[in-house]
């Protein structure tokens, strides 16, 4: 039987590995922006020739962060025992990881936007 996207999302399990996806995307985006400009300015002597690549990279990074945030949000709303969710059960562990992932995704979203705005607005090496 073929699973729908909604089913896949509900079937997926947030883990410590998926938890680090949004900050990792943020880090990669940050390093790409800074290193690309720095290397281009130092070695080629000019701002990277394709400024729209920053926009494309930023949109891609934001898409991944939003996707992991949405998946985490859906999983954080699993039906089950009433709050507080602070027991050592599988369900509570999953909820904790999901909420943490969602908050990290929100933080990473803001971080990526704040990194991208200067890169897109300042197309100058000086």
């Amino acid at each position: 039987m073929k699973l729908t996207w909604g089913q896949r999302v509900r079937e997926a399990r947030v883990t410590l590995w998926t938890l680090i996806v949004p900050p990792t995307v943020w880090a990669v985006h940050f390093l790409t922006c800074y290193l690309w400009v720095a290397i281009s300015c130092a070695k080629a002597g000019a701002f990277p020739r394709y400024p729209w690549a920053f926009v494309a990279g930023t949109v891609a990074a934001l898409a991944i962060i939003v996707a992991s945030g949405v998946i985490a949000w859906i999983q954080s709303r699993r039906p089950g025992d009433p709050p507080p969710h602070d027991k050592g059960t599988d369900n509570d562990r999953l909820r904790f990881l999901a909420v943490s992932t969602m908050l990290l995704a929100a933080l990473s979203f803001v971080g990526v936007v704040f990194t991208a705005v200067p890169a897109v607005m300042l197309t100058d090496c000086r």
Binding site: V110, F114, V117, P118, M121, L122, D124, R126
Partner: peptide, 18 residues
């Protein structure tokens, strides 16, 4: 706060362009 800071950042960035 995120939106306000972003607005202030955008307001200040043009000055950084020589």
């Amino acid at each position: 706060p995120a939106v306000s800071l972003l607005a202030l950042l955008i307001a200040s960035l043009p000055l950084m362009r020589p």
